[in-house]
Design a protein around this nucleic acid. Structure first.
Lengths: 140, 140
DNA sequence: ATAATTGCAAATTTTTTGCAGGTTC
DNA sequence: GAACCTGCAAAAAATTTGCAATTAT
């Protein structure tokens, strides 16, 4: 997976097997929390230590390789930073996070006129119920 | 402060001095994190225990009296739920959070057409630098 | 060779819990 | 009086740290 290794270019971070595995896991799921990374990888990579996952998520975030998503009611999730700008759709029932591409010019326009505050970027989180969970709810 | 007591109407929650003090503190600051609530109140209310703050924030959130804000890089903050709908401006330097009133019809329109996903509400967080911090940065 | 990284165990920090004694409605 | 709360201390969970051995560049 050269694609994964490339994510580290321009950083002083080394391409260790553990680190690459963590990045691959994040890329695979799109959005995933620390525990799931650890549990999933432990299966195929038994020596992987929890501390390594902690340290890596911290370091990778610090160097802008990944982003941390702070979402209501669920554990923080991580995603690869090098992606087209997007926002997030969160299912309040199952916690699944999906990328969503929104035109946010209206918001950007409004933030331009804020007195004294320089806005760098805006994040939008949309909360609702995904189709899978909607189906299940009908069943009850 | 009858205004504070009224926030508990319709819930089975009792108006204890501790709870009212916590709510008053949240209302006073607009947005405040758990530690600050505890530290601030400890001064005027020495017997206030940290566990009580934890339990109250949990219960008050559970009953929709307050909302928890999950913000990038800073500790979760709490705000009174019974407010006009608004969004948030976050200073990346000092962490101060300010309410902002945005017209989000453009986003709402877009989420209506999402296949299979029912969106209940969208949250917008705008990150940047506040005027105070901008001033200080100039100084350096 | 150098600087970075890992895994482990210990240390910290954060959050939750159980319960006895009080309080609110 | 019933249900709910508080404060305390203990327990559990989450996160960080130090360090010796190993690995990537």
């Amino acid at each position: 997976m050269e694609k994964i290794k490339k994510l580290l270019e321009g950083t002083p971070l080394k391409a260790t097997p553990q680190r690459l595995a963590i990045l691959k896991e994040i890329a695979k799921f799109g959005h995933i929390d620390l525990d799931s990374i650890y549990k999933n990888l432990s299966r195929t990579f038994p020596s992987m230590s929890l501390a390594t996952v902690y340290k890596n998520l911290h370091t990778l975030k610090e160097h802008g390789v990944i982003k941390e998503l702070n979402i209501n009611e669920i554990k923080n999730k991580y995603e690869i930073a090098a992606q087209k700008k997007h926002h997030h759709l969160v299912c309040k029932v199952c916690g699944e996070v999906t990328d969503i591409f929104l035109d946010t010019t209206q918001i950007t326009e409004q933030t331009k006129s804020l007195e004294g505050f320089d806005v760098d970027y805006c994040e939008v989180f949309c909360y609702g119920v995904c189709s899978k969970c909607k189906e299940k709810e009908k069943g009850n």
